[in-house]
């Protein structure tokens, strides 16, 4: 406030800071991004390749690692379609209809985002665990939920619950209800209206939502850690396998698997950005 004496040499918009301040801010931003964002990612790949690519690849080719990859894919394969159907149904009925309790439902859909992943795992142990509500009943019938695939799927369903609904809902709301109403006056039923009219209008957003849901399903750690039981080769997903290897001081292996997961994240990120551009342009085009 005191340096009213400085006279800018050339025109500078009133909303812009002086050049040296802008330069300073840019440098500071880049530094923050380097330390907080780039270095951690770089560290994953450097650590993974510390003893060379072959060692990293060998670590991935271990049977236990391969089993973890298979299990991770399996969990995602079950989880994503369930949340796809549920998320679409929820987004459709919130966007296209008015009913009492709509706000509560919208809040409920966001809820898993603000719940600790550990709690997401915990709630299913409380129900299906050895001392859970259904524990004795399940034990008597020799059905294993916790420390087995169903538990992993349930915990993953919980943490990936909002993704599809959250990405598709704003798009559906933006589209309004005109086209669906027109379809109704032309004699179309609910399913047809949904498939022929609503869905094509949100397809890119939907794909982005599915990708995000899938990335989280494959990368989830906290929730599945609680329900997994950490049985190598059986109930270990990739992130859990990273933990085991790391705790056993097999750093090269741990970082190799971590690098694989990081790649998944990066690919998802790039694809999501691409889809956002595509749907943005799509809005104007057709």
């Amino acid at each position: 406030m005191s340096d009213g004496t400085i006279r800018p040499e050339r025109f500078q918009p009133a909303w812009q800071d002086r050049p040296w301040i802008r330069r300073l801010l840019a440098v500071a931003a880049v530094l923050v991004a380097l330390v907080m964002l780039a270095l951690p990612l770089l560290a994953v790949f450097v650590e993974a390749l510390r003893r060379g690519l072959p060692v990293a690849l060998d670590a991935i080719a271990e049977p236990d690692t391969l089993a973890a990859i298979r299990l991770t894919l399996l969990v995602a394969l079950v989880t994503v379609p369930v949340n796809l159907v549920g998320g679409l149904a929820a987004a459709w009925c919130i966007a296209k209809f008015d009913f009492p309790g709509k706000r509560v439902l919208t809040t409920l859909i966001d809820l898993p985002f603000s719940v600790s992943p550990v709690i997401a795992g915990l709630v299913f142990v409380l129900i299906f665990g050895a001392q859970g509500w259904l524990g004795p009943w399940l034990q008597a019938r020799d059905i294993q939920v916790i420390f087995a695939l169903p538990g992993l799927v349930l915990a993953t369903l919980f943490v990936t619950f909002p993704f599809v609904a959250r990405t598709v809902l704003p798009l559906m709301q933006e589209q309004g209800r005109d086209e669906e109403e027109a379809a109704a006056t032309l004699g179309a039923g609910g399913l047809r209206t949904f498939l022929m009219v609503t869905l094509p209008n949100v397809k890119w957003g939907l794909l982005a939502g599915v990708l995000l849901c899938n990335a989280r399903a494959m990368g989830e750690f906290g929730a599945v850690s609680v329900v997994s039981g950490h049985i190598r080769g059986e109930t270990n997903t990739m992130p859990l396998h990273v933990e085991i290897l790391y705790n056993e001081y097999q750093f090269a292996g741990a970082f190799a698997v971590a690098a694989l997961l990081a790649l998944l994240g990066l690919v998802t990120l790039v694809a999501k950005t691409g889809l956002e551009r595509l749907s943005g342009r799509n809005g104007n085009l057709a």
Partner: peptide, 22 residues
């Protein structure tokens, strides 16, 4: 627009069993 009951039914089943009851 038709299809309200079905979609709300799916939604409640989905949200209820995965989030609400747990």
């Amino acid at each position: 627009v038709p299809g309200f009951r079905t979609s709300l039914g799916i939604t409640l089943l989905w949200a209820g069993s995965i989030v609400l009851i747990p």
